[in-house]
Design a protein around this nucleic acid. Structure first.
Lengths: 182, 182
DNA sequence: CAAGATTGTTCTTGACGTGAACAATTCTTT
DNA sequence: AAAGAATTGTTCACGTCAAGAACAATCTTG
């Protein structure tokens, strides 16, 4: 079959004895419908979909995927968009303050900031504290962000279509707790 | 200051002229409270917290962080936990089916499966289709997963403490849409 | 002024995910 | 039944994303 790996220790063990042997009358060694009927196995995942954390994870994956396809014409990723918004609303803030508010390490924001700066969307101005950089959007950055905002509204609308207007409002209310530090 | 990078083109520009100069009477070149008052800048991020996608992202980060610290004694990551649960509830399923249901590529599940197998938590049994591996939990895997389940319940309880019982139920209802394919 | 703290940067490391290429096997088609 | 196409698991190369250590420049504090 495939190359050598962890699996080929337990090969060559064919079918299975008729009578169930281990642990007589229990649910273990269950139906195994996958080995017999090949067509559409119908995987059960109730064990996961009843966990809010799993649903949040799946929702987040959908959000990023839809965000990326929506913002693709501008080539703006979610992290980059959040940086542009925070810089626009807080002109002159430092990289340290930005990294704290976005919840990433100060070394982690440097590559995306470099890219945004090389694309002439923001500038690192000198501040009174000469250790820091005062971040500001360029005129071009403000224009692109305005365009991005309208696309993000389309994305938000698609999310609303998916969960309903009522569900969308509930999401904003319930998840508001995670908006600050947390 | 720092080494050579994209920023040090715009250095050596010290303070700022008293009177505002560029674009007379607009919101641009705003208060810049960060350059004057140094103490607790009070960063505004309304622009982000009004987006459901951003809140979902923040909630997801909290969920993973809390999950990881809660499950740390068992050394189980979220992705590994979801694999164990799906294999327990669907004994004998193939790696392909598992990767489809978890939404990752079939090459991407091999490293975590290898680790779980080397830890003797699951085994890759031979199936009637000799191309595939029938995934099953070992007795040890079932025992560890039972322990993990109780820890995950604690984690879920902490999430409920954070959003309230009502909010928790609303999350399950609203996000149920993302539980299947999507 | 000297000692310590802060900021931005680089470098290394690790988790995680995708896509291409490939061997073994099964399925399809005639 | 045999040839060609499709499927499954694997490896490999690659890219993204985030964290931590070390360091220079600068500020703050005693």
């Amino acid at each position: 079959m495939m190359r050598t790996n962890l699996a080929n220790q337990t090969k060559r063990r064919v079918a299975r004895m008729p009578g169930p042997k281990a642990v007589p009358g229990r649910d273990i060694e269950a139906p195994t419908a996958h080995e017999i009927g090949k067509r559409r196995p119908e995987v059960r995942l109730d064990g996961l979909t009843s966990l809010a954390g799993y649903l949040i994870r799946q929702a987040q994956l959908w959000v990023f995927a839809d965000f990326n396809t929506t913002l693709a014409p501008l080539d703006i990723r979610p992290a980059q968009y959040s940086m542009l918004v925070v810089i626009r609303d807080n002109p002159g803030l430092s990289q340290m303050a930005l990294s704290e508010v976005l919840g990433i390490s100060r070394s982690g924001i440097i590559p995306p900031l470099d890219e945004l700066q090389s694309r002439k969307l923001l500038k690192r101005t000198a501040a009174s504290d000469r250790r820091t950089h005062a971040l500001r959007l360029t005129t071009e950055g403000k224009a692109l962000l305005a365009h991005a905002d309208s696309l993000v509204q389309q994305h938000e609308q698609r999310l609303m279509d998916k969960v309903g207007a009522r569900g969308h409002q509930q999401l904003l209310n319930v998840l508001e707790v995670f908006g600050r530090d947390s």
